[in-house]
Design a protein around this nucleic acid. Sequence first.
DNA 1: CATGAATGAGACTTCATTCAT
DNA 2: CATGAATGAAGTCTCATTCAT
Lengths: 209, 209, 209, 209
Amino acid sequence: MDTVLLKSPPGPRPAAPVGKREQTKVQNRTMILEAARRVFAELGYGATTVRDIIRATPLASGTFYNYFKSKEEVYQALRDEVALKVRPRLRDARRQATSREEFLTSSFRAFFQFVADDRGGGQPAPERFRMDSPEVLAGFAELREDISDAMARGLLPSTDAAALAAALTGVAFELAERIKAGANVEATTRFATALFLGGLEALPKNPEV
Amino acid sequence: MDTVLLKSPPGPRPAAPVGKREQTKVQNRTMILEAARRVFAELGYGATTVRDIIRATPLASGTFYNYFKSKEEVYQALRDEVALKVRPRLRDARRQATSREEFLTSSFRAFFQFVADDRGGGQPAPERFRMDSPEVLAGFAELREDISDAMARGLLPSTDAAALAAALTGVAFELAERIKAGANVEATTRFATALFLGGLEALPKNPEV
Amino acid sequence: MDTVLLKSPPGPRPAAPVGKREQTKVQNRTMILEAARRVFAELGYGATTVRDIIRATPLASGTFYNYFKSKEEVYQALRDEVALKVRPRLRDARRQATSREEFLTSSFRAFFQFVADDRGGGQPAPERFRMDSPEVLAGFAELREDISDAMARGLLPSTDAAALAAALTGVAFELAERIKAGANVEATTRFATALFLGGLEALPKNPEV
Amino acid sequence: MDTVLLKSPPGPRPAAPVGKREQTKVQNRTMILEAARRVFAELGYGATTVRDIIRATPLASGTFYNYFKSKEEVYQALRDEVALKVRPRLRDARRQATSREEFLTSSFRAFFQFVADDRGGGQPAPERFRMDSPEVLAGFAELREDISDAMARGLLPSTDAAALAAALTGVAFELAERIKAGANVEATTRFATALFLGGLEALPKNPEV
DNA sequence: CATGAATGAGACTTCATTCAT
DNA sequence: CATGAATGAAGTCTCATTCAT
């Protein structure tokens, strides 16, 4: 019976599946994802409901389930989508780095810039910490990955890798909050870079953390 | 055996009412607070419901409302209670510090030790970031306060105070996660201290973050 | 059979959406309103709960909130609906009256007849007074309005308008209770009319109630 | 065993049971009743809860149940108490009446005065009708009783007794609302009296309502 | 007796999800 | 597919009532 449907338009077959149907489908999916992004940012993952997401959309409640099975699934999709956007930036920053300073600077800059670009949305977050939003989690995951690679490549000293990753992550996260509040990306990048450039020299040689 | 108890305090009678009723009240309040601590840690603040807290308790549903008006109120109470425990330790650490190194070392140690002592609770959080748990927030607030004081006293260089506070906070938090996972308090303290001792030297002189 | 339905209206298509969905919506709304009417009549407004109303219905609990936000809102709707039915009758009675007697007679008759027509509902109210039922309140408001108009038109003597309105209202209401219990509409109308025809003559000329 | 109790005090036997215990008991009972009176007046019988009554009292919740089994029971007690206070006034007014006018005047006056005396309490009733308060019910019951007696004694014409009772009740009730709102008792009494003096003459001789 | 905390039933309301249209 | 009303489970909170103190 699908055949029947496919046959019915006797005109020229579309070159790609970008009929009105497919277009709408993509649009709706995008609408839901963006609505979810806004709502997660405002209420946090735990507190947002599927209803909240639908309400931030012109779509009907039932439509949500044509695209996602649950809140969890939108979350995953959002996470993947964000990771897809951030990964190249960070990977590029990392690959082009030829010195420890450049590695730190470009990594922090890429991350802070991403946060700065993303903060547009809504009113300032009602609660201080919104660590469970997909963007932030994806950003952190990427940062960690970059750090591990850098250690492997010798750009960072061979101290306790996990501890350093944690320290970098923590600094990046906390300063990111300041970025969200309007702090300057470049100055913040310099600050973080200087801190770690100096700190890395002083770290215990044979750490046993 | 009652006789023994009745005899034992030959000194001044305690002023506080310690009838069976008061005892039960204190016990119940504690039960709710500890249940809330566990549930917040597991589900996050946003996702936990009052029912979740009650269910982690042998008490009846209505009993919750004899002690707290809402989830928010337990949260505040938890936050206050934790702050009350951490504040003295950190304050002492700060007051007794006579050098930059000592300031950093004793602050980190006090914080990490507190986290280590406190980590008994539940299973590790299923999601990576749980920044909105009361303990963490309270710890952060205290740490920030200590940092500001130290800057005023000259133990820390006059760089961007807020940015440094954020960096210290971030590192403390992320390393605390490792402490919770079993990392050694002293080694972690050394790591963090060394990182900041070196980093502070390298920080930009006239920061404009 | 669909064919029959599709064929049947050869005239102009009705503008109102009368799909199965809309039909069900109207039916459900009506079910809730009628259930509310019965329950208010039986328990009184104060004592009835939303659950009472739902239970007097085959609908699920959540469905109530698709139609009304609260008990108060059903009450308002009921009130409005009843007022909508009574207003024309009383307005007609008032407009066509050319004498004092006719004004009283037709007003009382219209009101009593409405009560008689409407009394189908439930068992007699278990408590004597149930002034807060929507029908009664709406009827009173209408009666008052009519009285004011009549005074303005000279059909009623210029005594204390509000007091007379109250008296007419009170008599109408109490006799309406008798109507509900089966009293004859015409005889009751004659009784009330005679009472006020005589009474109006005797009222104080310059009232200062 | 009662004997034992009576014997126990070897001193002079108290003339009446007005020990401290009995005094407190009477006071508490009175407090509950007056609180209930206020709350019923404000919220209506149906909407008030036992909690509401206790809260309007300095007593503990459990204490309520030492005096009354339920809201219903307080209501009955209040009703009885009020009836006990009103009956003498109305009975006196009725007994001393020697003419139709005097009967009507003194009855209305007594009722309106009672309502006026009683209205002190709280803020104006949030809803228009509060017919289910014990005072109003008791007042109406008494009024009806008086009317029946008056008919029996020939002070009122032999028309449909029940219909007249209803009319008098309705007028008394509606005007009582005006009294509560501050209307003058004497003027209102004159108004109601005049209305019925004139109206009674005009009533159908052989009513068949 | 007075007290007031505990209890669990039940009221109000929102939610995720389904399904007829 | 989109729609949005229906559903009933579940959450929030209040209530009447009991009972240990």
